[in-house]
Nucleic acid binder design. Structure first.
Lengths: 188, 188, 188, 188
DNA sequence: CATGAATGAGCCTTCATTCAT
DNA sequence: TATGAATGAAGGCTCATTCAT
């Protein structure tokens, strides 16, 4: 996993985000890093492997960070707030990679797609776990924790579709606002 | 816009949803409707036009329905509830077409993409408008209405990624639950 | 299996014989029939399929003809003579196709290769059967019929490596001579 | 011609036999000897040169051995028997190399191919010479010595296509049997 | 001697689109 | 309308060979 591989992966992330996986040719990636098309294959074994590794890395990061938050010794409510803030901030900080994960995972071959799907399902379960613990602790109303998790994840993931660096709000502010919405609701 | 065109569009929707736009060949569509590849071109002018019309139709539907809800003579809160329920139910009822809209719009040529983008922006504005009216009416807390709209839309759009017909909850129930979450929050 | 397919197959046979399967590109075949490379794929599904069909057709012909000879109501000796003459004449008459069969079969994918291998094994068994019947009838000395068949087939197949149209001897003469050698030997 | 070259040549023989010349990559050979692809080129000048040297060595061996047999002071018949036995035993003893010679020679560039072709023609002439001498000595019937040589060579070469070590018959037994067939024929 | 990065040409195949029939 | 032959560009990938280190 040389330095050059990292360069290639970065080029791929950028191009996959800009044009989409299918619309990005290996030639495009080669041009971006200043190599011949064939030379790329010293570093990668296929275009799809590139996509796989990118999505893998992305979802792993999300899982790792959420696990850390879950271990935190604060109230469930605070853990949920942290999780929301962290997710939104991560999406913004890794906008291209997250976009590739959320938009291109289904371009993976079935077997690779399954791997990502499983990690994604696990991520959802971790969110539901936080909510369940909040209910158990009497911090949240009893409810369908998986459905709540899906609502929260929907909002937080969607950020990749509209967030722009340099906008009026920082990712931290967006995250806080979202946490506030989910916890307190919007009614007066 | 003959009857045959509708048949072709339906086939395209189904296949674009199943395999993705790029992975669906014109041959696939022809096979699905029982025509030869060449014959399709009596009805369509290009594969991309098919995608354009599908996404166009989908976003138009969302806008049309939301406009109708906005005109309803009930409280802002009830209009928001209606809007959420309606959106979720529509996603579920037109799962394939909505998936194509939300997932494949960026496969459109830039000029077409812009058209869809504009209608999508308009849809967001309509949501923000409802929220603003709720705030003005004292029903909702003052806040960043566009951000709230993005949160709600994120949750509601995301449904296309996980909803499955025949699941435990009906689309109506999911919509109600989501409305409840956003209006009341999840804290006890 | 249009007329054009036959044209393509003929071109392939000619080129595979001249340059070998691997050294023949799809471009070469396309050039030979005056089509674009991509246009070939209206008629074939892959280059390998072309090789498969050619070898299949070739070995089938050999089996079919030998079966007919076996059914002939003449002495085993005469059937063997007929078989040798027929094989040599067939090799000469279908020199290119036979060359492809005998030289390129191992370029087939394992699964296709197995099919050809099985038919080839069957061909050998038919030869051994003739010899066994000759032994039983007291026309041939008892012996290892399979080994004798391999000796005869070796000589007769090898013809593809040296036969040239317009040479001093006709295929019929070569066949007769070979039959004579195997039946009578060369000693005075 | 270092020791390493011999190692590389052996690897090439093995791989060319197993997968065919075209299907064997320089990488395959490098892997087999535990070198990097680029390092091979300290020992060889091209992949084709490797094939050339292998086939050269193989055909030279056949010619050398046959010349020695021709010089033997025994009857023509015995010399023929020796030649057949020797050829079959050599094929079996150098199965891989012989396979490469007989199967891959046409993968050589035209100029190299010509060299091998000439040595092969010479080999055939040596066989015909033995037969001619047998005829002159009254041991064999008068006949087309070249055609007889081709028949014998066909049988004996073909052995490379079916011989398997550890079979029921030893190469010596096969050679003797073949000699017997050609000299005496199979008729009772 | 050995490495491994890089080349550049070539390979088989796919595909949206056109058009004569 | 419908066909299906044909196009031509592009795609992902392989590979023998070179060369600076």
């Amino acid at each position: 996993m040389s330095n050059k591989y990292e360069e290639i992966a970065q080029a791929a992330i950028k191009l996959f985000e800009q044009k989409g996986y299918h619309a990005t040719s290996v030639q495009d990636i080669a041009d971006e890093v200043g190599l011949q098309k064939g030379s790329l294959y010293h570093y990668i074994s296929s275009k799809e492997e590139l996509l796989m590794k990118i999505t893998q890395q992305s979802i792993s990061g999300f899982n790792r960070r959420l696990e850390k938050i879950i271990e935190t010794q604060v109230s469930a409510k605070d853990r949920l707030i942290l999780a929301i803030q962290n997710h939104v901030v991560s999406v913004a900080a890794n906008l291209e990679m997250t976009t590739v994960l959320l938009r291109e995972a289904l371009s993976l071959e079935p077997e690779h797609h399954t791997v990502i799907k499983n990690e994604t399902d696990r991520y959802l379960s971790l969110w539901a776990q936080i909510i369940d613990e909040g209910v158990k602790a009497g911090e949240f109303k009893p409810g369908n924790s998986r459905l709540i998790a899906l609502a929260i994840l929907g909002s937080c993931n969607w950020v990749y579709r509209w967030y722009q660096e340099g906008g009026k709000l920082t990712p931290e502010e967006i995250g806080s606002y979202f946490a506030h919405i989910f916890i307190d609701g919007i009614k007066k």
